[in-house]
Design a protein around this nucleic acid. Structure first.
Lengths: 338, 338
DNA sequence: AATAATTGCTTAAACGTTTAAACAACATAA
DNA sequence: TTATGTTGTTTAAACGTTTAAGCAATTATT
């Protein structure tokens, strides 16, 4: 038994499809459907449990009430939290979410982009792919509203949601200094991505403001290809005698977790031997023997704002721009705090 | 400038829409389009970068190449891993994924169900909502192919992907016994859900097989409403003098993590004072000072199999049934293993 | 030479909606 | 009386595809 459609309802009531449609779309007043007819229609709709075929509707109205989101990998803490907020917010506004993962692969990214566009999504939220350069041009040439999350590319006619990476990195570094660490190291990925450059700038500025000289030996930048080994040899290098490093600022939670594992393994005591601060938290932190001091991005808010910006963009009544959200700083005990 | 459609292509070439469509769908042979014409069409398609409007296509073919998945919360380890596999598998077969979260709320679940059905998804994968009873009837009455993951409801004309919960729980318990623990406790949620009942059965059977008497005092079942307190008072109860509990089997990773946090906090040494095993792992385990022995569900495989079953169901050439996947058991050092 | 088969296309209906435009019936105003 | 409005409804085109059916031109068969 096939789903009942407008025609079925109309035939059953002996009226035209148009009339039924008007009632359904709340246009009885404008289209002067008599209240008797309207009532009949409502009854029939209820009786037959009619629900509109959104595909047909979309074809006609050119609106799918669907947004696409392209993430790097759903299996990241950042992603799940942001996606969760996006989906919640969309539920609120009657939008649904189609999603695809690029797995950091630019080609996959473009494939997904095409699929989503052919599905006629009303807009896109993009959590960018590392190392991908051309996607913004592709997006722009498609004339589809989109919002970029997290990463701030050049070019200002874009809609972007991000946080002040430099500021939060500044706070992280400053906290290490304030808790008595003199030789504060920096551990990050080897990359040209804006958010990580900003974090480095925050680190540098904080040290300068504290009149501490920057020591290039304390700056470790890891090749992602060789992640685990990179972290380990980075830690080894930092903690070798002579360097007298007494604090480390990790620019991502992934690096922090891997480093903490290794510190655990080597029996290095935190915070006694070395104080640590992480940019971003990890669900794993609570299992470490001491609460890890860290910066916290407002992931939920990032998702919410991204959706709001996108929906405004879709409704065409908004200027584009970069929305910068406030982060918070969570003080634990990994720097020897009282 | 609007997207180019079949009509544009046809007009440009001075041929009919039908011919273009036939070429596009690889029906040149059957429909006897001359190779000259076909070539012209292909060129034009390329030149204008034509891509089909999937909405129109779907309306006609009644196929959206989209599946819906309803999860409890994207923010769970189980969910992200399964969803990741589902999406990867779908990419392979040219399907896209629409998703919605029920947040454990049956009403939200039904709302999402309706939205997805109106979007004409070809099928559904459902990671069930705790405490929801009616959803299966709702699903069945909708005559839409669907696969249930993880939880095994009564009624056998369903397609289900699950693991052998009893068997894996048996292994977990047996391992505690084999590593010298005599007074093995069980900590789970207070629930009637099949997978947790099965895990309890595994625990009981393992002890019986080892000729150890079941002690109701060592069985803790936590009210989810009061989760953190429940875990803590459960641990307190188990470790109080007199009970001489020397091992605990946690039936979920969430319970295990919360318990480990509390053990940490209280300074209780694992595995010296108490050995622990967890059903399911957590990304947090590596930060614990000792590797946690645990059962591992084949999450990726669960996702893959769910998709395969669903696509077969959609193509109508498959019997339904319960596919039970093999789990593995990861030996750490949390039971005092050498 | 007449008929049949093949080739290469086109026509047009259909999918389930929305919506501008038309229309019939009646009421009101001049 | 004629024109003018108002009310309640229907008609039909359109959205961008797919696809069965039709048809003219050419080629093959008898």
């Amino acid at each position: 038994m096939n789903k009942v459609n407008l025609k079925d309802i109309a035939k059953h009531l002996g009226i035209s499809i148009a009339t039924v449609s008007y009632v359904l779309n709340g246009q009885e007043k404008e289209r002067r459907v008599s209240s008797a007819t309207a009532e009949k229609v409502r009854e029939a709709i209820h009786q037959f449990e009619y629900t509109a075929n959104q595909i047909a509707k979309s074809l006609k109205t050119k609106k799918t009430n669907t947004i696409g989101i392209i993430v790097a990998d759903i299996n990241y803490r950042f992603t799940t939290h942001v996606v969760r907020a996006i989906e919640k917010e969309c539920q609120l506004y009657g939008y649904t979410v189609i999603f695809g993962s690029s797995y950091e692969n630019p080609e996959t990214f473009l494939t997904i982009l095409n699929v989503l566009i052919n599905k006629q999504v009303d807009g896109l939220i993009v959590i960018p792919v590392d190392n991908d350069r051309g996607y913004i041009e592709q997006l722009k040439s498609r004339e589809i509203p989109f919002v970029i999350v997290d990463r701030v590319p050049e070019g200002s006619d874009l809609s972007i949601v991000s946080i002040d990476n430099k500021d939060l990195a500044y706070q992280c570094t400053q906290h290490l200094v304030k808790t008595g660490h003199q030789r504060v190291a920096f551990m990050s990925y080897q990359t040209g991505l804006s958010h990580l450059l900003d974090r480095k700038a925050g680190y540098v500025t904080a040290l300068q403001d504290a009149d501490i000289e920057i020591d290039q030996n304390l700056i470790i930048e890891i090749d992602e290809k060789n992640f685990v080994r990179g972290v380990q040899s980075g830690i080894d290098a930092l903690l070798e005698r002579g360097k007298s490093c007494d604090g480390i600022f990790f620019t991502t939670d992934t690096i922090a977790v891997e480093a903490i594992k290794y510190l655990n393994q080597k029996g290095i005591r935190v915070p006694d031997q070395v104080g640590i601060v992480s940019f971003d938290e990890s669900d794993a932190f609570p299992l470490f023997h001491v609460p890890v001091t860290h910066g916290r991005q407002p992931l939920r808010q990032i998702g919410e704002v991204a959706v709001k910006m996108l929906l405004e963009l879709i409704d065409e009544n908004t200027p584009k721009g970069n929305t910068i959200l406030k982060s918070t700083f969570i003080v634990g005990k990994s720097c020897g705090e009282k």
